[in-house]
Nucleic acid binder design. Structure first.
Length: 108
DNA sequence: GACTTGACTAGAC
DNA sequence: AGTCTAGCCAAGT
């Protein structure tokens, strides 16, 4: 999983939706590389909607210099993503890619 | 190739 | 609901 792979994925996240670092890692084919995704986002090139990437709790992650955190929230709210007690309800705003239900393991 | 450094996470208290 | 911890991964030294 390279940084460019991460950017390629994040670029496809639509307005008003968010993804978690772990989710991006999984989509890139490396499920446990959430941390590396964070590293990639740190050096995010223009054109990549970095603000649509949040942590697994639906919160905006802390930077070294808490800068950028405020703008991230504002950008998201500007796209219609709602915050309740500082958190985003991922059940509602998480970006989901269509998947083949027929490939899921039988349940029950 | 061996450290070090984090916009991470799931699990355990 | 907070706080710790141990894994983990890619980049930069």
């Amino acid at each position: 999983m390279t940084r460019t792979a991460v950017y390629r994925i994040v670029r496809r996240v639509p307005r008003g939706k968010v993804v978690t670092y772990g989710q991006v890692a999984a989509l890139a084919g490396t499920p446990r590389a959430a941390r590396a995704v964070g590293q990639a986002m740190r050096h995010c090139p223009a054109g990549v909607p970095w603000h649509r990437v949040v942590n697994s709790q639906g919160r905006v992650s802390r930077r070294r210099s808490g800068e950028g955190m405020v703008s991230q929230r504002l950008l998201l709210e500007g796209e219609g993503v709602r915050f309740a007690r500082g958190r985003i309800d991922l059940r509602r705003f998480r970006w989901q890619i269509g998947f083949r239900v027929d490939l899921l393991p039988a349940r029950d």
